[in-house]
């Protein structure tokens, strides 16, 4: 049972973000890439929010988002991208996949947690 799924191939970022979210009292699951993320999401219906990196091996974050919408028909879960850059093309894909937000790394702004909590509950 988790509220938030953190998807990042970098264990440093993954653990950092997960620890931060846990410290804020949120239940967190983690996945190492897009494929793993899809499986974890399938296995745990209580996940309300996915916070994902974009560039990952096996399956990138945007593809995962698209598959969440198309294969799993999951429209209830909110997807937030954690990124260092963004291009109009990426944003276009993101919009189509119903991505709600883009957080530019580092993941530590005071405005972040309140909104994430709202999305995760």
């Amino acid at each position: 049972m988790a509220q938030i799924l953190v998807v990042d191939d970098s264990s440093t970022v993954r653990n950092e973000v997960a620890d931060f979210l846990k410290s804020q009292g949120l239940a967190v699951a983690t996945a190492v890439d897009g494929k793993d993320g899809l499986d974890k999401l399938k296995a745990d219906a209580s996940i309300k929010l996915v916070v994902s990196d974009v560039n990952m091996p096996n399956m990138d974050g945007l593809t995962m988002a698209e598959k969440i919408r198309s294969e799993q028909k999951n429209t209830a879960v909110s997807i937030i991208m954690l990124t260092t850059e963004n291009s109009p093309a990426m944003k276009e894909r993101g919009k189509a996949a119903g991505i709600k937000g883009w957080i530019v790394k580092p993941f530590n702004g005071p405005g972040v947690i309140a909104t994430l909590k709202k999305l995760a509950s």
Binding site: N86, K100, W102, I103, V104, K105, G109, P110, G111, A114
Partner: peptide
């Protein structure tokens, strides 16, 4: 500078919550 540049892209055309996400940058 690269963060600042990315924040513009992350906010414009997106929901207002993205400002809260990235304001600190």
């Amino acid at each position: 500078l690269s963060q600042l540049e990315a924040v513009g892209g992350a906010c414009l055309g997106e929901d207002v919550m993205n400002f809260a996400f990235n304001e600190h940058l």
